[in-house]
Design a protein around this nucleic acid. Structure first.
Lengths: 198, 198
DNA sequence: TATATAATTAGATATATATCTAATAAAATT
DNA sequence: AATTTTATTAGATATATATCTAATTATATA
């Protein structure tokens, strides 16, 4: 009797952290670091859980340079998992919905807070809307270029007169990095996100 | 998010003892004592596992006098469980197969060891086949009737000359009961079965 | 009412496991 | 060759759990 195999399969799924891992992976490949960050775990803990999921044939791995990418085992997806795990596969659809909501919010902010000439009418008071507006502006800067404070001010004034406030917000939300009077765009991964809390 | 419910479900199935319990219950209702005995566990341990299975909605209970009968949750059976548990529901089919194998063996014995006139050609040497032949003969006697040894001998001689051996086998395998010179059919439940060991 | 039977609850113990930090390994970049 | 980055292994710890015995509860029977 292959009882042990069945027990192992269910043990793999009998832990909330591992289910959340599968949930994340249902949205696409991820490497260890990213998983650890998203789940607020140490890297070794991710390794630990990955081992269990792997030996239950729930995930596959791919090594590229020295980083390991995890993904759901395609076999597992094809079979559609079991009823109790349907939510994992439904998650994609749910996120789509979420995403389109955010897309709509963004469009609404661009329409309502920016004038036809592209200038910012006023700084939104709502946190999420403010972030959307700031990001829209900061995206016009080029990555890898070092700007002086004066250049930044001139740039911002194209959009809004209160360049001091906006400049401060750029730093505060980590859109930019400042050293003395030099400003530079941060990588997009560092930008504060307005994603709804799930 | 109902993560906890899903975790609970898989935890319930992530233990060999509980899977064996489900396996036993797939063959029908059982009470606590019987489960404890079959699984070589104490009664409290059975209670412990039953609680987990119950809270995952895998089994149902019914109280009769002071004994509690467990059975698989019909909901669970109807949904057919999940792929990994199919073996539980396959057990019935397996038994069926087993039964038809025995049916075939019986037919073969009747064909090969009994002549056209119904007499036993020879006493089978194989244990299972011998039991089949003996049972076939003994079934011709009427239940509830008390036979003398002489009557039994006459009866057996219709089938085979060595009535002494066969008479002794009748007693040995508890097809009949003997008191002094009186022979009587035992109830069928007492007859030695040739079922294969499972 | 006393006794017997089946089950549950309480409490103890040993094993399993989820998590962390520290150390090591593997691979790439400087 | 030295440093950086990502991952794994080792070891420690705390929590969870499978199992037992002993005590308690629930029900039935003498």
């Amino acid at each position: 009797m292959q009882l042990d195999k069945i027990v192992g399969y269910h043990k793999a799924l009998a832990d909330p952290t591992r289910l959340r891992m599968l949930l994340l992976l249902s949205q696409g490949e991820m490497h260890g670091q990213a998983l650890a960050e998203k789940l607020n775990l140490s890297q070794p803990t991710v390794t630990h859980h990955a081992a269990k999921l792997r030996s239950a044939a729930l995930i596959k791995e791919r090594r590229e340079k020295n980083t390991v990418y995890f993904k759901l085992n395609p076999e597992f997806i094809r079979k559609g998992g079991e009823a109790s795990l349907q939510f994992i596969f439904d998650k994609g659809a749910e996120d789509m919905e979420e995403e389109s909501k955010e897309q709509k919010l963004k469009e609404s902010v661009l329409r309502n807070f920016f004038a036809k000439d592209g200038r910012l009418r006023q700084i939104p008071a709502q946190y999420k809307k403010k972030l959307i507006a700031l990001q829209h502006i900061v995206e016009q800067l080029k990555p890898g270029i070092v700007y002086s404070e004066k250049e930044i001010n001139t740039f911002i004034k194209q959009y809004h007169d209160d360049c001091a406030t906006i400049r401060r917000e750029f730093i505060m939300h980590q859109f930019m990095y400042r050293e003395n009077d030099n400003y530079e765009l941060n990588p997009r991964e560092m930008w504060t996100k307005w994603e709804s809390v799930k």
